[in-house]
């Protein structure tokens, strides 16, 4: 018999719990400390290596060459906030913020560019690497042939081959 009216017990539960919904956007939303939002790239630390563009699953990070500059372009519209780029960046230039209120009616608000100066090949003139990346490699690799550092990969192969083929 008591079983038949058990369903009324939901009322005391509701009164004990109170109201759990929040009046967003007039109340603040709840995000925990681990929440992953949009990323932020530190232009000072980024060397333009492109590791993040290779791991990004939806290709939100891309490397684009426009004239003399290499641009690391971050498009929030494609970002899935996985944070793989932050894990993979060798310079730890990418931080994950808690920003998720990113809606806008201007699409260029969603693009963030980090620009890098490009180094020109001494022989053929193609722009092949960011200056910062070249400097970084020079500072890490101790035994670096300085004379061939500023050659693009193609020219470097040709130069190395010609030196090896030249009889002493």
């Amino acid at each position: 018999m008591i079983d038949m009216v058990k369903f009324v017990k939901v009322i005391p539960i509701a009164s004990k719990v109170g109201t759990v919904t929040i009046r967003y956007p007039y109340d603040k939303p709840l995000v925990t400390e681990s929440f992953r939002g949009a990323i932020e790239i530190d232009p000072a630390k980024c060397v333009g290596c492109g590791a993040c563009t290779r791991i990004c699953p939806p290709k939100a990070l891309t490397l684009v060459q426009e004239g003399n500059t290499l641009i690391l372009r971050y498009f929030v519209g494609r970002c899935i906030f996985c944070g793989m780029c932050a894990d993979v960046c060798p310079e730890k230039a990418i931080t994950i913020t808690k920003e998720f209120e990113l809606a806008t009616d201007q699409i260029h608000d969603l693009y963030t560019d980090v620009e890098h100066e490009l180094v020109e090949c001494e022989r053929c003139g193609t722009k092949f690497v960011a200056k910062k990346l070249l400097d970084k490699v020079k500072s890490i690799v101790e035994v670096l042939p300085e004379d061939r550092a500023k050659l693009c990969p193609n020219c470097r192969r040709l130069e190395t081959l010609s030196r090896a083929a030249t009889p002493r």
């Binding site: 939901v10 009322i11 509701a14 009164s15 109201t19 759990v20 919904t21």
Partner: peptide
């Protein structure tokens, strides 16, 4: 009814 359902 909303009170019973813990919402506004």
């Amino acid at each position: 009814k909303a009170d019973i359902q813990s919402r506004y």
